[in-house]
């Protein structure tokens, strides 16, 4: 780890000032990804701003509009086991429990989870080129080892994926990220929070360098009955998703009123295709329909050799997830049989 100074501001305002004080300042909360990356010399901040004790960001509260506001510093564990989350947003609870381990979930925060960086091997290895880590050096993953890489929304400069499970569920639930910056507070819809790599793969999100996440807000719950989080990976636990699917359906009898489908492990951000979701409206859940929806979601998917299989895997995962959601039999994160 490089040398850096450390500050522990007592208020959000102070934290914003600390962050603005140095261009290479970094915010630390749980530290589960940042400290990891600092040891690999992937992150070399000169100033660390410890926000872990900021007041008011550690609770889960009602929004007043029927939704729930999860403070940025709420641990992944606390969010996953919160009874309101479990009852009203079981998809979110399930997705969080599909990720990482009990130890990591205890330390990792809601805000930090959104900001975790890709697990691309090349990004993680400071000895090799990577345009996300060092702009302009290129992407060796494209013709290298790319089993875990993206099939959608890639660019010539980067084929990394976003590794979060939680963010995939939040995308399906249309959460909103509340942020504070020097110019005040603003809302970023989750769909716009993460970005595609394009020509600037070094930027993972649309959060300003001088901004801090305050909370994630969930709109009124609609998908507590027909949902699933299906995660496929290279071992049965403690591995990042090759493909994951958050599926949520609002049903009226045997007809779909509204559908949300977000994919993880396939792109630089949780992948949603609203046009595909609309295709389910008014339909009875049926494999044929699911297949059409899956094909629409994966329109334009492109493999790089090692990850070609993900296209077919993602297609099948969408179909399975939709049938789990429609049947009201969400995937268990402990029973490794897939329903």
């Amino acid at each position: 780890m490089n040398r850096f100074s450390y500050a522990r501001p007592g208020s959000v305002a102070d934290a914003l000032r600390e962050v603005a004080s140095s261009p290479a300042a970094k915010i630390i909360a749980g530290g589960t990804n940042l400290v990891d990356l600092m040891k690999y010399n992937v992150e070399r901040p000169t100033h660390l701003v410890d926000v872990s004790r900021l007041p008011g960001l550690k609770s889960i509260e009602e929004t007043g509009e029927g939704g729930l506001r999860i403070g940025a510093l709420v641990s992944n564990t606390s969010a996953a086991y919160d009874t309101r989350v479990q009852e009203r947003y079981p998809l979110l609870s399930s997705a969080i429990l599909a990720g990482a381990t009990a130890q990591l979930r205890n330390a990792a925060t809601t805000g930090g989870n959104l900001l975790q960086r890709t697990r691309c091997y090349y990004f993680y290895d400071a000895a090799v080129p990577c345009s996300k880590r060092e702009p302009g050096t290129g992407c060796p993953a494209k013709d290298g080892v790319n089993r875990i890489h993206a099939i959608l929304g890639t660019s010539d400069k980067c084929i990394a994926t976003h590794p979060s499970d939680m963010a995939v569920a939040l995308a399906a639930l249309e959460a909103v990220v509340k942020v504070a910056g020097p110019r005040g507070e603003r809302d970023i819809p989750l769909a716009d929070f993460h970005r595609l790599p394009g020509d600037t793969p070094e930027k993972d999100t649309n959060l300003g360098a001088d901004e801090i996440i305050l909370a994630v807000e969930l709109p009124e719950a609609r998908f507590a009955k027909n949902y699933t989080y299906l995660k496929l990976r290279d071992r049965l636990s403690y591995a990042f998703a090759l493909v994951s699917v958050a599926a949520a359906l609002e049903m009226d009898g045997d007809k779909v009123v509204e559908a949300r489908i977000a994919l993880g492990g396939v792109a630089h951000k949780p992948w949603r295709v609203p046009e595909a979701e609309v295709m389910l409206r008014g339909k009875a859940p049926d494999r044929m329909v699911f297949e059409t929806v899956a094909d629409r979601i994966l329109l334009g998917a492109k493999g790089y050799g090692g990850n070609d299989f993900k296209i077919e895997l993602a297609r099948r995962a969408v179909i399975r997830a939709l049938s789990q959601a429609a049947a009201g039999t969400p995937q268990s994160q402990t029973d490794k049989r897939i329903q």
Partner: peptide
């Protein structure tokens, strides 16, 4: 252990990406 033949380097050189079985397996 996955080798990038262009770089001549094992790329999943960590135990998050080199998958030793975990308890659930």
């Amino acid at each position: 252990s996955m080798m990038d033949h262009n770089l001549g380097r094992f790329m999943n050189h960590n135990i998050a990406e080199y998958h030793v079985p975990v308890n659930a397996d």
